[in-house]
Amino acid sequence: MKKIPAGTWVLVADGEEARLFRNAGTDYKASLEQMELIKPRDLLDDGPSGRRPPELNEQSIDEATFAKQLVNRLNAAALQNKYEHLVLMADPQTLGQMRPQLHQETERRIIREVAKTFTNAPLEDIQHALHEE
């Protein structure tokens, strides 16, 4: 059984939305409280990071931009010491877009990554997945 310390932030994301939780339970029995529902904003003004392959369609560009917005938020919060531990739960594509943009302070706080889509999953399924090996 995986340990998820009390107070850990859990980001559950895909390319279209994200849910940010905090573990209000114990280290071995997560009880997640939703802190925020995050939707993409100002996608045309922001744009994805890095070079953009010409074959990307509009939806892929929007998803990459949203991943960048999520990383910017996590990086800023890490640098302000708003959380000590972080779990990233995202579909493999979103997780792959986020990884190279993570600040070293954010990376240092990651205790677990789950490359699976849980954005529309019931809370019980998310909590159960946190403790699986």
Rank of each mutant, 00 (worst) to 15 (best):
P53R: 01
P53N: 00
P40F: 02
A67P: 13
T94C: 08
V87W: 01
K82F: 00
T119D: 01
A121M: 07
P92S: 00
Q97P: 04
Y83A: 03
R99P: 04
E113A: 12
N57M: 11
R73S: 10
L88I: 15
T119L: 09
H85P: 05
Q59W: 11
M98W: 02
L43Y: 05
S60H: 07
E63W: 06
T117Q: 14
R99T: 11
R51W: 09
F118N: 08
A76L: 12
Q104L: 07
D91Y: 00
T119K: 10
E58F: 10
P100W: 01
Q69T: 03
D62M: 12
R112A: 13
Q97W: 10
Q93L: 09
N75R: 02
M89D: 05
D42V: 05
V71E: 01
T119Q: 07
L44H: 12
Q69E: 08
N75T: 03
E107D: 11
Q97N: 08
L70R: 00
T65C: 13
I38L: 12
I61P: 11
N72P: 00
M35D: 07
D42F: 12
A67N: 11
H103C: 08
G50N: 07
T94W: 01
V87I: 04
V87Q: 03
E63A: 15
Q69G: 02
T94F: 05
D91I: 01
R52V: 15
N57A: 09
N57Y: 07
H85T: 11
K116W: 07
H85K: 09
A77S: 03
A115G: 06
P92R: 01
M35A: 09
Q59I: 14
E113T: 15
L79C: 02
Q80M: 10
Q69R: 09
A78T: 10
E84G: 13
A77E: 01
K68R: 15
M35H: 05
Q101C: 02
R99V: 14
L43Q: 02
D62P: 00
L88K: 04
E105W: 09
E84Y: 02
E36S: 10
E36F: 01
A77L: 03
N81I: 04
A77D: 00
E84S: 13
L70Y: 03
F118S: 09
E55C: 11
P53C: 01
N81P: 06
N72K: 08
K39L: 14
R73W: 01
T119V: 14
T106H: 03
L37H: 14
A115R: 05
Q59P: 04
A64F: 04
Q80I: 02
